[in-house]
Design a protein around this nucleic acid. Structure first.
Lengths: 342, 342
DNA sequence: AATAGCACTCATCAATAGAGAGTGCTAATT
DNA sequence: AATTAGCACTCTCTATTGATGAGTGCTATT
């Protein structure tokens, strides 16, 4: 564990490095902070901090730079400090940008991502709630041709999803209507995942109770509703132009490539799922190799029902957490508020 | 006009500059091309080419670099030469990547953009056909709440568009169905723009002929069908990671910002509209300030009906036109073929 | 335990010099 | 009259050098 002095110095080094983006030496530290210690003492403390892996030297005669471990320590201290807040002007601008003509929830989420990237001047990413978590308002099947029907799923946040359902044999529009009517009357107001589950169960249990034709349609529907969700992650990515200033052209491109690659983005998503509230991941390299020296600050948001998504930013590990964590937090809260009002 | 020798030298300078990406001097030119001229003669020719604005010197004692004017001349020569073609392996890879499970036309177009960016190693952009040009297959109105209906427009390429229509007063689902039925029976198989036009005209002419309620719905529909098309341009952008190698980090960011800005992209689009076949725009700076030293190669594609879009690449002005023009051309052709088959 | 002092290290920057590629001009050649 | 050889000149690029200064670790002192 770190003693009080080491803690103070680690904090000071990290904060200074964030502010100045240069290696921090003992003398510089004295100038910036009233530590009441001589440079030699600080050097000793730094040496032990280095041994414990919290800071490193880029080269022999340079100051110290926090390692990922150091940053994590710093961020944890920061998160414990609940006095963090954003400026009034920020808060004002945030709500100003987010309000506007009412659009569907996907549009709102996109707008939030855009706003977040603008305010934070970093790459912003927003992950919409899983379709499975959305609440069914209304469904409709429309005959497309002899082998295909079009399903249209309206969820109660106003978003609409269309999917083609491959049919095993031709159905009449009437048969399709009947199937839709069955789903609507039984399941409107429930989450998609529940609909699927109950449907599976009932189809299994009450084999005789329903019209065979309807049953077939339902079977097909049940399987056709998922596959669409891999397009989500990329949809709400904004502010690629705010990629960190420090990285060189090659890394910028590597990062862009990673961003275009859904696989990587899904990995990021996994990293975040499950947790509630604000979450900071220092050091993304283990998740996405191209993103060395990059970190992520993300927060969860919710809509009217319990379904929720994630919104956050990706930036250099030396980003200004003190400023950015509250921004992300407030954006998520604002987003939750707007989605709940609708 | 340029004489034969100047033409040859301009060509050689441009080609060399594309290959080597350095200023081209007279001696270097002799090494690479059997011009059978002394360096002094070439220098004289270069001097006059410079005076005419086809090439410049980056500094006094450097070789020559083609200006935009020079590149345009080169590209025009290239376009006249109809022997341009892509390698078999390219062609093979292209068709390999483009075929796959059948998806809606928008999906195919996106895939084409992705493939094009992969093959050309440049930023690819695809502009889908305007909604207005699409052919109506079927339309449906669904009552959403007392003030809103959801219109679902299926076009015959299999793509589906949903729009909310604000209603002036509550309508029953039956009334909405009636309106939809009217449109379907009268206008299926026609382009959206025609539907809109004829609708306007008929509503004006036959005021008495129809049910007043239906008429109102149609009025509302007619106005609600456009607004959606500004989202198109951005949808099919692929390969940001292939931004030219030469530009520095700052320019990369400026370009990314420009790409995220729909306004600029629409300007690009305008630049292309109207023309058929392959089109090369050398020098994008006048259209998008951030894109200095960038150019665009684009080609039009068509789907089954006459509605068409544009697909192309954006890259450095010193890109390899000889290789890239045929790639763009073939991709557009392949895309046309696939869209026609569906 | 904390600090002052000191020798040492190494990145950074500016100045300098030499090499090399290229030019335009002039005079000789075809 | 057009082409070419020769030449002086220009300017970038690269490497070298040396001074500067911020920083360190170690040791002896307080």
């Amino acid at each position: 564990m770190l003693n009080e002095r080491q803690k103070k110095i680690l904090w000071a080094v990290t904060q200074s490095h964030i502010d100045l983006n240069i290696p921090i030496g003992s003398l510089l530290l004295i100038k910036r902070y009233p530590l009441n210690l001589s440079s030699a003492t600080i050097r000793n403390a730094m040496a032990s901090l280095e041994q414990m892996g919290y800071i490193t030297q880029p080269h022999t005669s340079a100051g110290r730079v926090p390692t990922e471990k150091g940053y994590r320590y710093y961020v944890n201290l920061l998160l414990e400090d609940h006095s963090l807040s954003i400026s009034d002007s920020m808060s004002h601008e945030l709500s100003l940008r987010l309000q506007g003509e009412e659009i569907d929830s996907n549009g709102v989420i996109k707008k939030a991502a855009k706003t977040l990237s603008l305010l934070s001047r970093n790459l912003a990413i927003a992950i919409p709630p899983k379709i499975e978590d959305m609440v069914l308002k209304h469904i409709k099947f429309i005959k497309y041709d002899s082998k295909k029907a079009l399903s249209m799923l309206i969820s109660d946040d106003g978003s609409v999803k269309n999917t083609f359902v491959e049919l095993d044999k031709p159905y009449t529009q009437q048969e399709l209507d009947k199937a839709a009517h069955y789903i609507n009357s039984e399941f409107a107001g429930r989450q998609i995942k529940d609909v699927k589950e109950i449907l599976s169960y009932q189809l299994f249990k009450d084999k005789q109770a329903y019209d065979r034709i309807i049953m077939n349609v339902l079977y097909l529907f049940k399987d056709s509703i998922i596959m669409d969700d891999d397009m989500l992650s990329l949809n709400s990515l904004s502010g690629t132009s705010y990629l960190p200033d420090l990285v060189d052209t090659k890394q910028v491109k590597d990062i862009l490539r990673a961003i275009e690659d859904k696989q990587f983005m899904l990995k990021l998503l996994n990293q975040l799922s499950g947790s509630k509230g604000i979450k900071v991941v220092v050091g993304l390299e283990s998740i996405i190799p191209a993103m060395s020296k990059m970190s992520m600050v993300a927060a969860t948001y919710n809509d009217k029902k319990q379904s929720g998504g994630t919104i956050g930013i990706i930036g250099p590990t030396c980003m200004n957490y003190k400023k950015l964590i509250p921004i992300v937090e407030h954006t998520a809260k604002a987003l939750t508020r707007i989605l709940s009002e609708n």
